[in-house]
Design a protein around this nucleic acid. Structure first.
Lengths: 285, 285
DNA sequence: TCTTCTTACGCTCGGCGTAAGTATC
DNA sequence: GATACTTACGCCGAGCGTAAGAAGA
């Protein structure tokens, strides 16, 4: 189970071609073939069907393992080299789209910051592999409960802020005038699943015993104004941190009452941040 | 970052000796030396001090990564081979000590079961590496919230039961007569930390903002009667699922009121369990 | 001086590329 | 027959063991 073989395997599976993978990895097609053969012999099971090139059941399982495995490997290398490496000028901050509140923006140093917005699930990976010094992730959680982040590496996390979440209604919706709504009443409403912009629906579905909260529309963009426009147009409801939805035209934000969930932002970093990173972490703390 | 090198590194670090590690791994001392040298050159930083053999700062970081990495590697191999392997006779169940309630015991098939009690954190690993077909873990969680398990591999989890938790008081304790207690009132009480028998204190400390719940005594055994005896002798309080503490002499179990936490048991397995394992999962579901 | 890690050196085996073989479309 | 994976084979380098060297207790 050499990582090289694993890397080759995922490339072949992704590209559905030995020769394409060879091109991408800088090997000959023959070498790729031998890699796969070695893996299959090692594990004692065929991993790919040839012609067409498709993972077998065993290959599917291996694929599920391979990505986090290779990620951890990169994370380990980054973590070790980080200690020896000279601290670069500048500071890169990886953040999920709705994690950047006013508080964070105010705490940023005046110059030398790169802000990299990535999908929620990729923030820990970015920090672990050293792509960013600091990460900011947001998500839904019970009050003062930590977020459930994928553990790609031993990272330190750190609550930055919590604020109530609200449901985004179009103006004129029968519930739009309420002071608060209960989530249970909305399980069967039309919802917009906007995993990169709003708060993720699967979390609500899980909290509701796996039922309800089926998306009527999926929005894969990252623009909050687009999302509010979709809600205003009646395509469905969305869940947002209250502050993110205020002031938009054609929509109303109604705070969520019943299940006590909050929008929580966490700061994540590896080891002991130094220099500008350390100051920012301190300012956020 | 060959896994072999990593394995050698952890062995050397654990044994604090190149030659001991060589013996254990079936290499010559020279090969071990070369392994470490290769790792250090690859990562560009010294990982161990020699004489005495101790991990450097970089080595410490690598050690933190190495164990989960090697575990995941084993898990991947087990997961893939599991598909091809012939289903063995018998069924091995890995369980944490307080996960085995009456419901589970009743659901066990009449013969061919091996029950392996391991530490809470090792249950997912046992299932992932194929040491056990099914795992049963328990822990504290908010009602209907899943447990926070280390993700060694893509495993399926599955709530089995939830029951209230209670604080174990010695008879005559001023609070022992109450109908319910609030955890916040007990932050500064004397506690017994019995991570393998009772419910883990760190969870409570985290819920309390990192304060309080400092253990007065640590019990590393696995015997519930021993724990109740320690409580009865006034060494401290302990947190248990209510049913586990009932009927013991010299102690009273008072249900926990305020923070809504329950004792939750989850069933964990890999892939789609077949045969006896499938039946048991069904019976627990 | 003894123990323990490092370095030197030779051997073997693993792994890659070239090229020929084979199977599927 | 063209395309795409497999197998054969030779070469180079990686990695192990033996053995000598160096450094600390």
């Amino acid at each position: 189970m050499d990582p090289h073989l694993l890397r080759t395997f995922v490339a072949v599976a992704r590209l559905a071609s030995f020769s394409e993978a060879a091109r991408e990895l800088g090997y000959t097609q023959s070498a790729v073939s031998q890699h796969i053969a070695a893996l299959e012999q090692d594990l004692g099971a065929p991993l790919l069907t040839r012609r067409p090139v498709t993972p077998t059941a065993a290959g599917e399982r291996l694929l599920e393992h391979a990505a986090p495995l290779l990620l951890r490997l990169d994370a380990a290398r980054a973590d070790v080299t980080r200690i020896a490496a000279a601290p670069a000028y500048g500071l890169t901050l990886a953040a999920s789209p709705t994690a950047l509140g006013a508080r964070v923006l105010a705490a940023l140093p005046p110059a030398g910051v790169t802000l990299r917005v990535v999908a929620r699930a990729d923030v820990p990976a970015a920090v672990a592999t050293g792509t960013a010094e600091i990460g900011l992730v947001d998500g839904l959680a019970a009050p003062s409960d930590p977020l459930r982040l994928p553990d790609v590496a031993p990272l330190t996390t750190h609550g930055v802020s919590e604020e109530p979440v609200g449901v985004l209604f179009p103006d004129g919706h029968p519930l739009a005038g309420r002071d608060a709504v209960r989530l249970a009443d909305l399980a069967d409403a039309r919802w917009i699943d906007a995993p990169d912009t709003a708060l993720p629906l699967p979390h609500l579905r899980a909290a509701n015993g796996g039922h309800g909260f089926r998306p009527a529309l999926r929005y894969e963009g990252v623009d909050v104004r687009m999302l509010t426009a979709l809600v205003a147009a009646g395509h469905g409801l969305a869940l947002l941190p209250c502050s993110a939805g205020e002031g938009a035209a054609g929509v109303r934000v109604v705070p969520l009452g019943a299940p006590r969930v909050v929008h929580r932002v966490e700061c994540v970093y590896a080891g002991v941040p130094a220099g500008a990173a350390g100051e920012l972490v301190g300012a956020l703390g």
